[in-house]
Design a protein around this nucleic acid. Structure first.
Lengths: 129, 129
DNA sequence: TGATTAAAACTACCTTGGTAATACTACCCG
DNA sequence: CGGGTAGTATTACCAAGGTAGTTTTAATCA
């Protein structure tokens, strides 16, 4: 079975993973409670998705009484990196600078964020030295 | 009809758009010639995809003799921005800095690229001032 | 004990990207 | 004229994300 490349996770799957990363462990009801206000889904939708994700090895569960407690089986770091990397690759032919450049013109970026970015670059440079 | 959010473009669709952006106009054969060496597809696959993309208003075509000449109907800028933005949003809750930070740790970034990035930030700051 | 309820299991459906074989069509060349 | 050839058109599949109704099961409470 293919380890299924992380970069093609759908929005709902990603959102569910985020909840799990946040909580460590969560029941369907927990996940549902978090997601429901954001997007109006049925409880069973979340449950089904979780089951599908388990089949794909993205999450796993254990039983606690009659309920299932799910945990993410993939690391946030890995997924974020994988998704981000894939995007830069497919959209900007690998040029991080191009990617950031587009991002900078596409959104309001606060002064604080710019400062933060600057520091990031400086750190990276230092490490590269 | 929904203007179909650009951020859900698949890899093949994106690649095809890139060819069209590059050429301005291209026949199926043209697109095929470019893509074939990268991924081993059938000619009809490309043709079908183009037709599907036309239905989705991503491209349009005119007839030149017996062949179709396709043109992108969406701007590269728009798509890149949209895809990039969506990613930052869904993965990093809108924090560009977080996004870049992950990208920096996920790939080899050349000194030149770092310099380029630094300049980008400085420019953005100047503009924001 | 019997009814309510909460949970999971099962089933089903739609959309879209991706992939391609096959069928049709018109044109050009010998 | 007749057949190759270069195109498009048609049709079909599969996988995966997303969505959710319906059914079963088990526990809890009155």
């Amino acid at each position: 079975m293919t380890p299924s490349p992380h970069h093609r996770l759908g929005d709902l799957q990603l959102r569910i993973l985020q909840v799990l990363w946040d909580r460590g462990e969560a029941s369907v009801a927990d996940v549902y409670a978090v997601i429901k206000p954001e997007r109006d889904l049925a409880y069973t939708t979340v449950a089904t998705m979780l089951r599908k994700m388990e089949a794909r090895e993205l999450v796993e569960h254990r039983e606690e009484g009659r309920a299932f407690l799910y945990r993410a089986k993939v690391a946030a770091e890995d997924v974020n990196r994988s998704v981000g990397s894939h995007l830069v690759e497919r959209l900007f032919e690998g040029s991080l600078a191009d990617a950031v450049s587009h991002l900078l013109t596409s959104r309001e970026v606060s002064r604080a964020e710019l400062d933060q970015l600057e520091k990031l670059i400086k750190d990276a440079k230092r490490r590269a030295k």
